[in-house]
Amino acid sequence: CHSECLGNCSQPDDPTKCVACRNFYLDGRCVETCPPPYYHFQDWRCVNFSFCQDLHHKCKNSRRQGCHQYVIHNNKCIPECPSGYTMNSSNLLCTPCLGPCPKVCHLLEGEKTIDSVTSAQELRGCTVINGSLIINIRGGNNLAAELEANLGLIEEISGYLKIRRSYALVSLSFFRKLRLIRGETLEIGNYSFYALDNQNLRQLWDWSKHNLTITQGKLFFHYNPKLCLSEIHKMEEVSGTKGRQERNDIALKTNGDQASCENELLKFSYIRTSFDKILLRWEPYWPPDFRDLLGFMLFYKEAPYQNVTEFDGQDACGSNSWTVVDIDPPLRSNDPKSQNHPGWLMRGLKPWTQYAIFVKTLVTFSDERRTYGAKSDIIYVQTDATNPSVPLDPISVSNSSSQIILKWKPPSDPNGNITHYLVFWERQAEDSELFELDYCLKGLKLPSRTWSPPFESEDSQKHNQSEYEDSAGECCSCPKTDSQILKELEESSFRKTFEDYLHNVVFVPRKT
């Protein structure tokens, strides 16, 4: 048989008469490798580009789960590009990614509803959504962080984005990388972005840091009482949809009607710091009717980097990364020049730590249904340095008659930039024990000054392991946590139920 035959053949030295091919099969003959313009397919066939392209389009058009959109890589027609490569849609070739590779997620039936953290986790790592997304989240724990972890990498949506009755959302900033909504599939009414009845939605994105392009379709905003109209108009300008909307697409009466839409800028007039305090004062603000001013709200939190936005980490279910302080308005003076500047002394802060701070007014709604208010920009203030805590785990070892090696770990709280350490030492008198000992005694162990690591005695271990207080009263049991108490109650309830079950099964009433 021919060298490319495997198993047997019907005619000697003829690659077209093989029972099976050793390498690849091409047009009725066995070959060692697939010549151009053919590609290896499933490690035994040679196919042309049209064959591989037909497989790709067949799966793409069917949208069946589990099928493969075949691509070409290293002269092979394979189910998908290997790690580190992405497909070129024009020629199906796998090309190296520039940075992290995109991950295209194809949605069944063309859309997916995100109504819980669990459903959001199914899209973790996706960068391109081939379909439409509907966000409908009523509640949950730590929602802002969970949504950002699972949806934060999405850069492109081919269909539309719909935010509907998501009472738990305060902001859409968890879509931190969303840059493009194509609108290839539109919501009824030709809408590519749809926001309806979101009672706590206050911000779409921080438009000073976020760009969003909507290729096709219109915007729809109705019944978002805490979303200011200025935020919607800003989205029109940034996304390129200005002029597409009709009169009733953006409701003037049901958007922002319960919001404090600040239209003035508060400026800080005085800032002073110490290692654990920050004193702030800002310019006074009074609405047209000074009785509408209820006070100020001061927001602050630790910020290692200057990239904080107002609604980071917030949701309507209680999660809030900001510390909020309510401040009463100052006494009002008739003389504008003698107006008191409101302020606040922030206490209990960490030394040498940068804080993000902003302040906003708290006002009631005027009778004319106009909203007044003022808010400052987010500023960054760093507390002063102070003395560091003591170095940890000092170790001293003498390696000769004239040297001592000293080692330690950095302090747990540096409280500033540590530039150097101060080492103090003092000579001590020799131990009298060394002169009084009889060095001729056998088995004498000389006193040693070398360091030995501390260890816990058996008594201390027994005390720590004991669940009861000892007789001397030195140790006591740790208080039980809520989960331990709940577990004990469940076990007790189970024992009672099981005992009742045994009584009912074992003891049967005697027939009379």
Rank of each mutant, 00 (worst) to 15 (best):
K103P: 07
V104R: 01
V104M: 11
V104E: 13
H106A: 03
L107G: 04
L107H: 15
L108V: 13
E109P: 15
G110Y: 13
T113A: 06
T113C: 13
T113L: 12
I114T: 01
D115Q: 03
D115G: 01
S116K: 14
S116P: 01
S116N: 04
S116Q: 02
T118E: 08
T118S: 05
S119M: 11
S119P: 05
S119K: 06
A120F: 05
Q121F: 11
Q121A: 04
Q121S: 05
E122G: 13
R124I: 15
R124Y: 02
G125Y: 05
C126A: 01
T127P: 03
V128D: 07
V128A: 10
G131R: 00
S132A: 14
S132D: 10
I137G: 14
G139Y: 04
G139E: 08
G140R: 11
G140D: 08
N141M: 09
N141W: 08
N141P: 08
N141Q: 06
L143P: 03
L143G: 15
A144I: 07
A144W: 04
E146P: 15
E146Y: 11
E148S: 10
A149L: 09
A149C: 11
A149Q: 12
N150P: 10
N150T: 09
N150K: 06
L151P: 00
L153G: 14
L153W: 14
E155F: 15
E155T: 10
E155R: 13
G159R: 02
Y160H: 15
L161F: 04
K162R: 06
K162W: 05
R164P: 07
R164L: 13
R165F: 15
A168K: 01
S171M: 03
S171R: 08
S171P: 00
L172T: 09
S173H: 12
S173Q: 08
S173F: 09
S173R: 10
F174P: 05
F175M: 11
F175I: 08
K177N: 02
K177V: 06
L180I: 14
I181G: 00
I181V: 04
R182Q: 03
E184A: 09
T185M: 03
L186M: 10
I188Q: 13
G189Q: 01
N190G: 14
S192T: 01
F193P: 00
Y194C: 15
Y194A: 06
Y194H: 11
Y194N: 13
A195L: 10
A195S: 11
N198R: 00
Q199E: 13
Q199L: 12
N200T: 02
L201I: 05
L204P: 02
L204H: 01
W205S: 02
D206F: 05
W207A: 07
W207D: 11
S208I: 11
S208Y: 10
K209W: 08
K209S: 05
H210Y: 14
H210I: 14
N211Y: 05
L212H: 01
T213F: 10
T215F: 07
T215E: 13
G217E: 01
F220D: 11
F220S: 03
Y223C: 10
Y223W: 10
N224M: 04
P225R: 04
L227I: 09
C228V: 05
E231M: 05
H233L: 02
H233F: 07
K234G: 13
K234A: 08
E236S: 08
E236P: 04
E236I: 04
S239P: 04
T241Q: 11
T241R: 11
T241G: 15
K242M: 10
R247W: 13
R247K: 10
A251Q: 09
L252N: 09
T254S: 10
T254P: 09
T254Y: 08
N255T: 04
G256I: 03
D257V: 15
D257W: 09
Q258M: 05
A259F: 10
S260P: 12
C261N: 03
C261M: 03
C261P: 05
E262G: 15
L265C: 05
L265T: 04
L266M: 05
K267L: 09
K267P: 06
K267Q: 12
K267H: 11
F268R: 00
F268G: 00
F268D: 00
S269L: 12
Y270L: 01
R272F: 02
T273F: 07
F275Y: 11
F275R: 15
K277C: 14
K277N: 13
W282H: 02
E283M: 08
E283R: 14
P284K: 15
P284E: 15
W286A: 04
P287S: 13
P288G: 06
D289S: 12
D289V: 06
R291L: 09
D292S: 08
D292V: 03
D292W: 13
L293G: 09
L293N: 06
L294F: 10
L294A: 05
G295K: 14
G295Y: 12
G295H: 07
M297T: 02
M297W: 15
M297A: 06
L298M: 14
F299Q: 05
Y300W: 08
Y300G: 01
K301Y: 04
K301L: 06
E302M: 02
E302F: 14
A303S: 09
A303T: 06
A303D: 02
P304H: 03
P304D: 10
Y305M: 14
Y305E: 04
Q306T: 15
T309A: 06
D312R: 12
G313F: 10
G313T: 11
G313H: 13
D315T: 04
A316T: 09
A316R: 15
A316L: 15
C317Q: 05
G318A: 04
S319D: 10
S319V: 12
T323L: 14
V324A: 15
D326N: 15
I327S: 04
D328N: 11
D328L: 13
P329V: 07
P330T: 08
P330K: 07
P330R: 15
L331Q: 07
S333W: 14
S333H: 11
S333G: 07
N334P: 13
D335I: 14
S338I: 03
Q339V: 11
Q339S: 04
Q339A: 13
Q339H: 11
Q339C: 12
H341E: 05
H341T: 09
P342M: 10
P342A: 12
P342I: 08
P342H: 07
G343M: 10
W344S: 12
W344N: 14
W344R: 10
M346E: 06
M346L: 10
R347A: 02
R347E: 11
K350W: 15
P351A: 11
W352C: 04
T353R: 07
I357A: 06
I357F: 15
T361F: 15
L362H: 15
V363H: 11
D367T: 09
E368K: 13
E368N: 10
R369Y: 13
R369G: 05
G373R: 08
G373C: 10
S376T: 13
S376K: 01
S376W: 01
D377G: 12
I379N: 13
Y380E: 01
V381Y: 04
V381H: 05
Q382E: 11
Q382C: 04
Q382A: 11
T383R: 00
A385P: 12
N387Y: 02
S389V: 03
L392N: 13
L392K: 15
D393P: 04
D393S: 07
D393Q: 14
I395K: 10
V397Y: 09
V397S: 08
S398G: 10
N399K: 15
S400Y: 14
S400C: 08
K409L: 10
K409E: 13
P410S: 14
